[in-house]
Design a binder for these strands. Structure first.
Lengths: 253, 253
DNA sequence: GTCTAAGCCGTACGCTGTACGGTACGACGT
DNA sequence: ACGTCGTACCGTACAGCGTACGGCTTAGAC
């Protein structure tokens, strides 16, 4: 019985919680929705580490164990959180309707997901487990597939292409979050980090052993003033990926 | 002071540990290398959750607090682990030398990283923080840049392209690990999961509201017999990405 | 009014990382 | 050979975690 990391032991139970009514309140006003909202708020403001059953309960003015009346455990709570986080940004399925070409549509999708991760960075810590198919994720999936519909991809290719874009954004967001986190932990900006660490690395990495990476690493470091630039990474990768998808269409004739 | 999540508060200290001598042993045979090896072995066989200071110490037949003589804390230990994990696969910098075209070279790089994550899945849990620039990562960076050298990319583009490929592989590996983890947690295969959950989803997702995703999701589910196919995801994405990079070269003339 | 089910929650257990202070040993100066 | 000192080692303790268990309290059915 792991104490950490989401991943419901009983998917059916979680599905019931996700799709069922979440507003049924008990006699102290407690409800699934209230619990999840409190947890999300805690995660947004103080990070996922602050989301403990004790702290969520305290925020609600309720005993710790009362939460277990409504939620089977922390695993399920985090799964509910990850669906709730999508509620803000994907309320209207129809918004990015088929206006414009597919490329600008997918760019919109990518930036929307980027914003999502900026707003709820803790989502990155919950990902990487069996996808939680909640109502809001379904809306999201529908909305994000539409730009790819009818442009010459097979159904399976549509799914693959979307997954590719979403995975890329997730990776870029993870890199971005890495910078933020490390920055405020060390109290140093990236530029300062580069100034401090750069010389050490140059000393330890003799150019004989690292001819290519010495040159390239310096160039990239100079260009970004940091060990990496997630925002540039997002745009560069998205451009290459969309080019690749374009080629997939073209080759069909 | 966070109790969880790597990210050294003192990067210089970690750098010293990474690049300095790790074999200096005390009077009970304890050394940085021994500690890190024990931790890696624990993570490989029982997952990252099993890597606690107490368990590592017990595995070494040593008191828990003795570890702190050699390692400042768990944060630094995990950083040392992530560099050590690269040791097996990237011992020889020169192996994937400029034989063959760049495309097959990068395919080799991608599969090598895929293998890395299969062998040490816990690496995925440590990523997403400031990159730990250890000696083995430096070897890796050098080796992986070489296929891209001299094919018409700028230095910054070389770095971007490599990052793109590596991020993609990481995402695919994360999806793969999600399947593994959830599978052995629920005791169900993906096919069984699909059989169990599929009907529930079809009932709850009326086709009026989800016209595109209903069709595409079914097709993808049928094709993969699972909510996703990480291995297919790896190949499909890599092909699109390399096509995109090829286009970047071609456009230059 | 009574009974029952469900909501609420205090306590306790085993786990975590690590601060602190004490012990014991290896090396070195004399 | 002997005292001294730095350092390796480690026992204990503390705050925090998820949650099992059992008891209390209350709303609703009859």
């Amino acid at each position: 019985m792991p104490t950490d990391g989401p991943g419901s032991a009983n998917p059916a139970r979680t599905l019931g919680l996700l799709w069922g009514p979440q507003d049924r309140t008990g006699r102290s006003g407690l409800s699934i929705r209230a619990i999840v909202d409190a947890a999300v708020d805690l995660a947004d403001t103080q990070g996922m580490d602050a989301v403990s059953m004790r702290q969520v309960a305290e925020k609600l003015g309720v005993g710790t164990m009362s939460l277990y009346t409504h939620v089977p455990g922390k695993t399920e709570l985090t799964e509910l959180m990850s669906d709730r986080a999508l509620a803000d940004l994907y309320r209207d399925v129809d918004e990015p309707r088929s206006q414009g070409d597919w490329r600008s549509g997918m760019t919109f999708v990518a930036h929307r997901n980027w914003d999502l991760y900026l707003r709820h960075p803790w989502l990155l810590e919950l990902l990487g487990f069996r996808p939680v198919v909640g109502p809001h994720l379904s809306d999201k999936y529908e909305a994000e597939l539409r730009p790819l519909d009818g442009i010459g991809l097979s159904d399976v290719e549509m799914d693959s292409a979307l997954t590719l874009v979403l995975t890329h954004v997730e990776g870029a967001a993870r890199a971005h979050q890495a910078q933020i986190g490390a920055r405020q932990e060390s109290g140093r900006t990236d530029a300062q980090w580069w100034v401090q660490v750069g010389p050490i690395l140059e000393k330890v990495m003799d150019t004989d052993r690292f001819p290519v990476s010495g040159r390239v690493g310096s160039a990239a470091g100079q260009a970004h003033q940091a060990p990496g630039d997630p925002r540039h990474m997002l745009d560069f990768g998205l451009a290459r990926i969309l080019d690749g998808v374009h080629g997939l269409i073209g080759n069909r004739g």
